[in-house]
Design a protein around this nucleic acid. Structure first.
Length: 283
DNA sequence: AAATCGGGGTG
DNA sequence: CACCCAGATTT
C-alpha cells in the first residue's frame, strides 16, 4: 500500500530523475545528512555541474569543496565527500562502488548512506532506515511516537520483514516509506487523516498514546558561543581565496580564548590549515 | 549511550 | 525559542 501511495504522491526530486548518475546520488545523500531536501536541491545542481564525475572533484583542493558547500552545515561532510572522490578515483577506477561493503569503506559513509546508495543508485534489495522511516516504524509498527533514542539498527528487522521480494518494488518501498515520513507521518502534527497506513497504524489503534512527548532536556556541555566562533572563522576563510592572518579573526571572534579554541578545533578537524606567519587558509 | 558537529526554517 | 532535518564519528 505504501508503494501504491508513493506512485501517486512522490515528489519530483532531482535524484529520482531517470538516468540520474550514481555519483549524483552519493553527493545528494551526503548533503541530505541532517539537511532538509529543499535546501539541498540548488546546491546539488551546482556541484554536479561543476564536478560531473568523482575524478573532477578529486582533482581540486579539498578547500574548494568546503567553499562550494556554502551554508549547508556540518562542513566536515564536504571534506569527507572530497575524500570520497579521491578514494573512488584511486581505489574504484572512478566509478561509485555498488555494494554496501565497499561503500562503507568510504569516509563519511555510514550505515544509512551505504544502503541508500546501493538501493537508489543501483537498485539493490536492502532495507534502508533513516529518520523518517524510524518514525514511521515506531508509530505504525511499535505503536508509540518516536521518543526513543535514535538507533537505526533497531528498526532493521521490521523493515526487512516488510520489504517486498522484488528488487524494484523494494527500492520503491524504501523511498515510499521515507516520503511518507517526510510528507504525512511528520515529526509534529502528522496528517493521519490522509495516511495510507491509518487503518493499520498501531499508534492510531492504541489511541495515540504519549502524543505529548516530554523529552529530556538536551544538556549541552559545550558553550554555544564556541560553536558560533567556529562558524564565524570558517565563513571568513570561505570568502577569501588567499591565506588570512590570524589577527583578522579578532573581528569575527573578539574573545581570545574562544578564538583559540575555535582555531585549534578547526585545525584538528582539518577544516583549515596553517601556513607561515600565523596565516590560515582552507586546505 | 551520549556528545559533537551547522545553519536555516518552522510551530 | 525549542525543535527538526534522507547521519557519521568519537568517546
Amino acid at each position: 500500500m505504501v508503494v501504491d501511495w508513493f506512485a501517486v504522491h512522490a515528489r519530483d526530486l532531482p535524484w529520482r530523475r531517470p538516468g540520474f548518475p550514481a555519483w549524483g546520488t552519493l553527493v545528494s545523500e551526503f548533503m541530505l545528512q541532517q539537511t532538509p531536501v529543499i535546501r539541498v536541491i540548488p546546491r546539488l545542481d551546482e556541484w554536479l555541474t561543476r564536478w560531473p564525475e568523482p575524478a573532477d572533484l578529486a582533482a581540486e583542493p579539498a578547500g574548494e569543496a568546503v567553499r562550494a558547500w556554502q551554508s549547508l552545515g556540518y562542513p566536515r561532510r564536504a571534506l569527507n565527500l572530497h575524500a570520497c572522490a579521491v578514494a573512488i578515483t584511486e581505489r574504484f577506477g572512478g566509478a561509485v562502488p555498488n555494494d554496501v561493503e565497499a561503500l562503507l569503506s568510504l569516509p563519511g559513509v555510514g550505515d544509512y548512506t551505504a544502503r541508500a546508495v546501493a538501493v537508489f543508485a543501483f537498485g539493490s534489495r536492502h532495507p534502508v532506515v533513516d529518520t523518517n522511516i524510524r518514525r514511521v516504524i515506531a508509530r505504525a509498527v511499535d505503536g508509540h511516537p518516536d521518543a526513543s533514542t535514535p538507533n537505526p539498527k533497531r528498526d532493521l528487522p521490521a523493515m526487512t520483514a516488510l520489504l517486498p521480494a522484488d528488487d524494484s518494488a523494494a527500492a520503491r518501498f524504501n523511498a515510499g516509506m521515507m516520503e511518507l515520513g517526510a510528507l504525512v507521518c511528520t515529526a509534529r502534527s502528522p496528517k493521519c487523516e490522509i495516511c495510507p497506513l491509518a487503518h493499520v497504524c498501531a499508534w492510531r489503534t492504541a489511541g495515540y498514546p504519549d502524543r505529548e512527548i516530554t523529552r529530556k532536556p538536551k544538556q549541552k556541555k559545550y558553550e554555544g558561543s564556541d560553536r558560533q566562533a567556529r562558524g564565524a572563522i570558517l565563513k571568513l576563510l570561505r570568502a577569501t581565496a588567499h591565506p588570512v592572518a590570524g589577527t583578522r579573526f579578532a573581528e569575527a571572534v573578539p574573545d581570545p580564548a574562544q578564538r583559540g579554541r575555535a582555531i585549534t578545533g578547526l585545525l584538528t578537524d582539518g577544516l583549515i590549515v596553517a601556513s607561515a606567519d600565523d596565516e590560515f587558509t582552507l586546505p
